[in-house]
């Protein structure tokens, strides 16, 4: 018998269930791309058969971090840059949970960059959505790791001298097994990509272009966008690392020239998830550890039985 009966529950799911019945209303600015992420999750979750209480949404700090205030699941709004280590551990403690981590480009590619690299490397079975608005939104418009070179802000008054970080390429090199980019302005694609990411067994990274009309006024609104799978101009194999790498590079290059490329970039269905790898070496229990604390028949090992080595 499980102590977590919301998990795996079979029933009709209404997308309204993911909207908090009482306050709060989203406080994002009108026209903000963050609404697009919220909407795509509300659509995707019921479609993949998930109920609100079997999902744990873990966010960082930023405008993006407010996601789980407006998405009615179990939520953990953590600290700036640290959503991934919190999310990873929750997944290890109870692998049956559907874990979604999310945060901004500053949060995930800047201050939390180390966690991003290692979470991808370890291929934790979770979805990671980066709200990429190429700016620090919440702190009022400073240059972020993905802001274009030359981007002017109060902290880079003469224009940024730095080349932007390449999120897709970094993700690939680090080891993520599902990598996609979508945009708030393309809700249909966004929903489909989020569904695939949730269903993928491994670290699924979605770089989600979310326009920030308040602080990133000179930036494009990510229209028009091109879906690299649908356009005849692009042809590459998303299961081929080298081809994916090349396509990612081009996508990152042209974004700052005004061409918004989106779509699936890399999928590796064969790579075992971290949960599987850790079980294979005998370092993760077969059954969810979290269940054990509710099992009245569980036999708890004692240090008393380890003392032979000390006598």
């Amino acid at each position: 018998m499980s102590a977590f009966n919301a998990i795996g529950e079979e029933r009709e799911i209404d997308r309204d269930e993911f909207t908090p019945g009482v306050e709060p209303q989203p406080t994002w600015c009108p026209g903000c791309g963050d609404f697009g992420v919220l909407k795509s999750l509300k659509q995707a979750l019921p479609e993949v058969g998930k109920t609100p209480e079997e999902v744990l949404t873990v966010t960082g700090i930023g405008c993006s971090g407010k996601l789980n205030s407006y998405l009615d699941t179990y939520g953990f709004h953590t600290i700036h840059g640290r959503s991934l280590p919190v999310a990873r551990a929750a997944k290890l403690a109870n692998p049956e949970l559907e874990v979604i981590a999310a945060g901004g480009d500053g949060d995930g590619y800047g201050i939390g960059g180390n966690h991003f690299i290692h979470s991808a490397r370890e291929n934790h079975d979770m979805t990671y959505i980066v709200f990429n608005n190429e700016i620090f939104g919440l702190t009022k418009g400073q240059t972020s790791p993905t802001s274009p070179k030359g981007h002017k802000s109060k902290t880079q008054p003469s224009g940024s001298a730095k080349t932007p970080l390449r999120p897709l390429s970094l993700s690939l090199t680090s080891g993520a097994s599902y990598i996609a980019r979508t945009a708030a302005v393309n809700p249909n694609q966004a929903k489909e990509i989020i569904k695939e990411a949730i269903e993928h067994d491994g670290f699924a990274h979605v770089d989600f272009l979310t326009q920030c009309p308040t602080w990133n006024k000179d930036a494009r609104q990510y229209v028009p966008y091109i879906d690299v799978q649908e356009s005849d101009d692009y042809d590459f194999d998303i299961t081929d690392r080298a081809e994916a790498a090349e396509m990612m590079r081009e996508t990152e290059d042209v974004l700052n020239e005004g061409t918004v490329l989106t779509g699936r970039y890399y999928v590796d269905e064969d790579r075992p998830s971290y949960t599987q790898e850790k079980k294979a070496v005998g370092e993760l229990p077969e059954d969810p550890l979290a269940e054990r604390y509710f099992d009245d028949d569980a036999e708890w090992e004692r240090s008393y039985d380890l003392l032979e080595r000390h006598t």
Binding site: I79, P85, A89, A90, K91, A290
Partner: peptide, 17 residues
């Protein structure tokens, strides 16, 4: 930072961490 954050995450999900 990750180490302590993992302890928080595991505990949040119900494990003594």
């Amino acid at each position: 930072v990750a180490a302590a954050a993992l302890a928080v995450g595991a505990s949040h999900a119900g494990v003594k961490a």
